[in-house]
């Protein structure tokens, strides 16, 4: 480079900067936007794509779970369960519920009557399906909708209240289900990040697995 003379960029120049024509500035703006877009919007993603495929292929593909050769879900994306023999996820506002192509929450304000009424209704349904008395405290995650509508987790308290129902419909000892639940309860990551949680899909898969083993 010819213009690479010694130069202190923090001292600046006492003489006014040389006048450069506006056209030159515009030319630079156009070529730099195009070139740097290629660098950051094309080369960078390609490098990352290659590295991701090489190092973490399963995660890059979306952490999909297969059973008997069929893709049955993603480990990260919540899916809906309504049958009594499965643990139920949180209510969802994504599309018509757990729509993986249309994420979102209710966006209802805290004082909105619709929110209060829907929580009342959800709590009633939750108590009924789990055989709880009408004044039993319900864990709040069971009656509120997540931000994404695709929350794959529930709180351990929520899961614990569902154990009797799941055990009864499956004809299992409550202790067996409870032990499985304990196995699938994750603590905070690295001890301090996030809340304790249970992956609903993982737990239900494990239940089905256990059922198949007993059947055999």
């Amino acid at each position: 480079m010819t213009s690479d003379e010694p130069f202190d960029p923090m001292r600046g120049a006492s003489a006014p900067a040389p006048v450069v024509k506006l056209r030159e500035h515009i030319r630079l703006a156009v070529v730099s936007v195009i070139s740097l877009t290629l660098l950051t919007g094309c080369i960078f993603p390609l490098v990352l794509f290659a590295l991701g495929r090489l190092l973490y292929p399963a995660q890059a593909a979306g952490s999909l779970v297969t059973r008997n050769g069929v893709v049955i879900g993603s480990r990260l994306i919540g899916q809906d369960f309504t049958r009594p023999e499965y643990f139920h996820p949180r209510p969802s506002a994504a599309g018509t519920g757990y729509d993986g192509a249309s994420s979102g929450g209710t966006n209802l304000g805290p004082n909105n009557a619709k929110l209060v009424e829907s929580v009342r209704q959800l709590a009633e349904d939750y108590r009924r399906s789990n055989g709880l008395p009408p004044d039993a405290a319900v864990p709040i995650d069971a009656v509120t909708r997540s931000g994404s509508g695709l929350d794959p987790h529930i709180s351990p308290q929520n899961a614990a209240l569902q154990v009797p129902r799941v055990a009864r419909t499956r004809g299992l000892q409550e202790d067996v289900v409870r032990r499985l639940l304990a196995d699938y309860t994750q603590g905070p990551q690295l001890g301090f990040m996030g809340d304790p949680r249970v992956s609903v899909l993982d737990l239900n898969l494990a239940l089905d697995q256990a059922a198949r083993l007993t059947a055999r």
């Binding site: 709040i140 994404s148 709180s155």
Partner: peptide, 16 residues
């Protein structure tokens, strides 16, 4: 309404 826990409407369980 007898619910327990912080304001989880619009929040994810993993972040709490």
């Amino acid at each position: 309404l007898h619910v327990s826990g912080g304001n989880m409407e619009g929040k994810e369980v993993r972040f709490g």
